[in-house]
């Protein structure tokens, strides 16, 4: 095949726009996905008849596809625009924004090696402080009992703990596995951790504003884990489909992607 083609040229990319190694266009479309799914309610038949937007199930996935910084940006832009378009859907806007940022950062930091292998430390500090603020304020200021405080914040502290422990790295490893069963397991565990993490930073904010009495803590004890479980289920179903699809299409992978 070497007929008169001449010499191979040196190919160099002379400029172009990316956000922390992810093409700007990827960040835009995933932000738009978060925004669009913010308007699809997920009515889950739990005891209280709770409902949350489907977007919550994919915030971690965006972090894994784009990496921590671009993921956080896509999440925050999508979430903020959802609030701007329909302010009445968010009772405490700042809570949604903070949660979206943490989801991207935490998911994108589940790496095994490289210069970002220590990013989990500051994130963990934020998570632990948030949890302490939440539970601490409940127990010390408002006299909530020790047991309900722990039981009600189960998803927060379990997510945080699993993020600090090597399970964080395990998720990263599973997500990159060729075995789709392991990928699904990684997605389930990973969504548990990341959704737990963003819930953990949202809790003290919600609690500061709403300052609900001890009785409400009791009511929430069974509801929160069920809701969380559904979030994980959504994250897993969507995540396995999307990751299998992305691998099949062979799209250019963002630099810090974990899949």
């Amino acid at each position: 095949m070497s007929v008169d083609r001449g010499e191979e040229r040196k190919v160099e990319f002379l400029g172009g726009a990316s956000v922390d190694g992810a093409p700007v266009a990827y960040v835009i479309v995933l932000a738009a996905v978060v925004l669009a799914l913010s308007f699809i309610p997920f009515s889950v038949v739990v005891a209280a008849g709770g409902s949350f937007p489907m977007a919550q199930g994919i915030l971690p996935l965006v972090g894994w596809i784009l990496g921590p910084i671009a993921g956080a940006i896509a999440n925050v832009v999508g979430t903020a625009l959802a609030i701007f378009l329909a302010p009445h859907t968010a009772s405490i806007p700042v809570m949604n924004i903070v949660g979206a940022i943490i989801a991207g950062l935490a998911a994108g930091s589940m790496v095994t090696d490289g210069p970002r292998k220590r990013w989990w430390i500051p994130i963990s500090v934020v998570l632990v402080i948030s949890w302490l603020l939440y539970v601490g304020r409940g127990i010390l200021v408002n006299g909530v009992g020790l047991w309900p405080a722990f039981a009600q914040s189960f998803i927060d502290w379990s997510g945080t703990l699993l993020f600090i422990l090597p399970t964080r790295v395990l998720v990263g490893k599973w997500l990159k596995s060729k075995n789709m069963g392991l990928v699904a397991a990684g997605l389930f565990l990973g969504t548990w951790i990341v959704a737990g993490a963003y819930h953990a930073v949202q809790s003290p904010i919600a609690y500061w504003v709403l300052n609900f009495p001890e009785e409400v803590w009791y009511i929430l004890i069974p509801i929160l884990p069920v809701e969380h479980l559904f979030r994980c289920l959504i994250g897993t179903v969507i995540g396995t489909g999307v990751i299998a699809g992305l691998r099949a299409i062979g799209l250019v992978k963002p630099k810090h992607a974990i899949y």
């Binding site: 479309v29 996905v33 799914l37 489907m54 994919i58 179903v237 489909g241 999307v242």
Partner: peptide, 11 residues
């Protein structure tokens, strides 16, 4: 949830 799969991949 499967609704989101073609949505994200298409995007």
């Amino acid at each position: 949830s499967k609704v989101a799969i073609p949505l994200i991949l298409g995007a």
